[in-house]
C-alpha cells in the first residue's frame, strides 16, 4: 500500500481501538497501526503467502474469503473496519458496506476510480481500461465491480451511509489540487471514512 494512503487511514483510526482489516494483504497497514496507534488488529486474508507474511509480522490473521464472511465477525465488537482496494472484487459490494458498518461504527473504504480520465480515454478508444492502478486485462482482473467516484458516493447516499471524510489521490498516489477539485475525472483512488446514519 502506498505510504500516503496508509497515512490518511492512520489519521482516522483512533488510538487503542479494535480494528479489522478485510483483505489485509501482508499485514503492513495493521502493523503500522499497531506500532503508531497501539491498536488491537485482526487481518482477514485468503492468500496463503500473504497470511504467512502477517504471521511473520506478528499480525493476527484469519483465513477467510471476504465475499463469504463479514457477518461471521458480527459478534466481536470492533471500533473500526478497513477495506482497502478490495470492495470492487466482491460479489455484493453494497452488502459488504452495510455489514462492515454493522461490525463497527466506522469504516474506511478505498477504491480505484473508473472515472479517472485515463480510464475514460481507454474506453473512448474502445478498450477496457488498463492503467498503472488497474494494471490487469479484463480477463485477468479480480475487479468485477469497478465504479466511479460518483457511483460510489451515490451508493453511500442510497444506503444511508454518511461520508464523514474523504481524500482523493492522483496518479502519483498523493493528494493533489486537481484530484480534489474534480475527483471523478482526476482521482485515481478514493479514500472514504464512512459511518452509518
Amino acid at each position: 500500500m502506498a505510504k500516503e494512503l496508509s497515512s490518511y487511514i492512520e489519521n482516522w483510526v483512533p488510538e487503542n481501538s479494535k480494528v479489522i482489516d478485510f483483505g489485509c494483504g501482508d499485514g503492513s497497514l495493521l502493523k503500522k497501526l499497531i506500532n503508531s496507534k497501539n491498536i488491537l488488529g485482526y487481518g482477514v486474508e485468503i492468500n496463503d503467502e500473504k497470511i504467512n507474511e502477517c504471521i511473520k509480522k506478528k499480525v493476527p490473521v484469519i483465513k477467510q474469503d471476504i465475499d463469504m464472511g463479514i457477518n461471521e465477525f458480527a459478534s466481536s465488537n470492533f471500533d473500526f473496519s478497513i477495506m482497502a482496494r478490495s470492495i470492487q472484487c466482491l460479489k455484493n459490494p453494497n452488502l459488504a458496506l452495510n455489514r462492515m458498518l454493522k461490525l463497527s461504527k466506522r469504516c474506511v473504504v478505498t477504491l480505484p476510480n473508473l472515472g479517472y480520465w485515463k480510464c475514460r480515454f481507454d474506453l473512448l478508444k474502445g478498450r477496457m481500461p488498463v492503467t498503472p492502478d488497474l494494471p490487469l486485462s479484463w480477463f485477468e482482473t479480480e475487479n468485477i465491480h469497478l465504479c466511479t467516484i460518483k457511483d460510489f458516493e451515490k451508493l453511500c447516499s442510497d444506503e444511508g451511509i454518511k461520508i464523514q471524510d474523504k481524500v482523493f489521490l492522483s496518479g502519483s498516489g498523493k493528494k493533489s489540487l486537481i484530484s480534489s477539485l474534480i475527483p471523478n475525472l482526476f482521482a485515481t483512488e478514493g479514500v472514504y471514512l464512512l459511518e452509518k446514519e
Binding site: 479494535k18 493476527p60 490473521v61 477467510q64 461471521e72 465477525f73 459478534s75 466481536s76 465488537n77
Partner: peptide, 19 residues
C-alpha cells in the same frame, strides 16, 4: 477451529485462524 478463534477475538485475544 474458527469457533475458538472467534471466541478468542471476542475476548480481544491476539489470535489467528488458518485453514
Amino acid at each position: 477451529g474458527k469457533e475458538i478463534q472467534l471466541a478468542a477475538m471476542n475476548n480481544n485475544i491476539r489470535s489467528s485462524y488458518i485453514t
